[in-house]
């Protein structure tokens, strides 16, 4: 049935509609929202601001998309962000170069990701339980590493490194592009995407079909750790400090929301990376517009809740609900 196929196709762009609608409403109701300008060799404007602010959520959500497509969930992304930020700050405090700081953050992210993967794959714990535990432990570890204070990043190549604006765009936004491209290559260019989706859709069948299901799922958690660590680097370099107690708090909710608004079903079996980015941008557009309007935080929360509902309703046909 062509009409059905067209409808399904249209429904699969639901996250884009949400983004466009929020942007349009914001542009119409908020003065200067739609303006873009070229100043001192860089593009400035509310839309650029939205992109920059959405970076941490976009990074974490990219990693989460893989985990969720594999049938899992990772609640520890916010804590990993904090730990990586503290790690980078400590490394540069100790006189390390930007590369050392980046290495420390990435290493910590990979380590926690591997831990999560081991708990879920090797030990067989429910992902939500295992990553809930690591969310608490890793946040604690970040606080221990920070020694109870906000670790400043004073004299570091790290800030300059991520503060650079090649081609007039913020480096952090380019970092998102880089990670996205890497994931897309891994997903499409190699069999990894098919492996993740098959493992998430039906792990038993995937195993009998000769797929290395355990290794694939393990890899999704490791990559998610990596993505969250990169988010930590961005946050640390932006505020020139690492706050172990509040950095990345509730990031997991926003990131999961971005993934789900993007149309990746929570039951696994599909990974929609680009749609996840669109979902994250839609959320941030909303947040920025409400901030520019000067809405009280509780009104902003209410609007956010309603938008989530509307997004869910629009995306409904593509949810891929239980198959007969």
């Amino acid at each position: 049935m062509p009409s059905e196929r067209v409808r399904a196709k249209l429904a699969s762009f639901a996250p884009l509609y949400v983004l466009l609608a929020t942007w349009l409403v914001a542009a119409l109701t908020t003065p200067h929202f739609a303006e873009l300008a070229w100043r001192d060799g860089r593009v400035v404007g509310a839309s650029v601001d939205v992109c920059v602010r959405a970076v941490p959520v976009m990074l974490a959500a990219l990693g989460l998309t893989l985990v969720i497509a594999g049938g899992g969930i990772d609640l520890s992304v916010g804590s990993v962000l904090a730990l990586a930020a503290v790690g980078a700050a400590r490394a540069s405090e100790a006189g390390g170069s930007a590369a050392v700081a980046v290495g420390a953050a990435v290493g910590l992210g990979l380590l926690v990701g591997a831990l999560n993967g081991a708990l879920v794959v090797a030990l067989g714990l429910a992902p939500i339980v295992a990553t809930l535990a690591s969310m608490i432990v890793v946040r604690g570890a970040a606080q221990l590493a920070a020694g109870g204070v906000v670790v400043p990043i004073d004299r570091s190549g790290l800030v300059e490194f991520l503060g650079a604006r090649p081609a007039g765009l913020p480096a952090s936004v380019l970092l998102v592009g880089l990670l996205f491209a890497a994931f897309v290559v891994a997903k499409r260019g190699f069999a990894f995407g098919l492996y993740i989706e098959a493992s998430g859709d039906n792990p038993r069948a995937a195993r009998l079909a000769g797929l290395p299901v355990g290794a694939v799922l393990f890899a999704t958690y490791v990559l998610c750790g990596l993505a969250s660590a990169l988010a930590g680097l961005v946050v640390a370099s932006e505020i020139r400090a690492a706050d172990s107690a509040s950095a990345g708090l509730y990031l997991e909710l926003d990131a999961i929301l971005a993934v789900v608004i993007g149309g990746t079903p929570l039951s696994g079996g599909r990974a929609r990376l680009l749609a996840t980015l669109v979902g994250a941008l839609a959320l941030q557009t909303l947040a920025t517009a409400m901030l520019m309007h000067g809405l009280a935080p509780h009104v902003a929360l209410l609007v956010k809740g309603l938008v989530v509902l509307v997004a869910a309703a629009i995306a409904r046909p593509s949810w891929g609900r239980a198959i007969a």
């Binding site: 069999a191 098919l194 492996y195 989706e197 098959a198 859709d201 039906n202 038993r204 069948a205 995937a206 009998l208 079909a209 000769g210 797929l211 079996g269 599909r270 891929g320 198959i323």
Partner: peptide, 21 residues
Amino acid sequence: KVDGLCLGLSVRENLALGVQR
């Protein structure tokens, strides 16, 4: 349904699992 197929994936993807190995 339980052990054999990835029901949410397409025919093409299910067949690709065979050659992918």
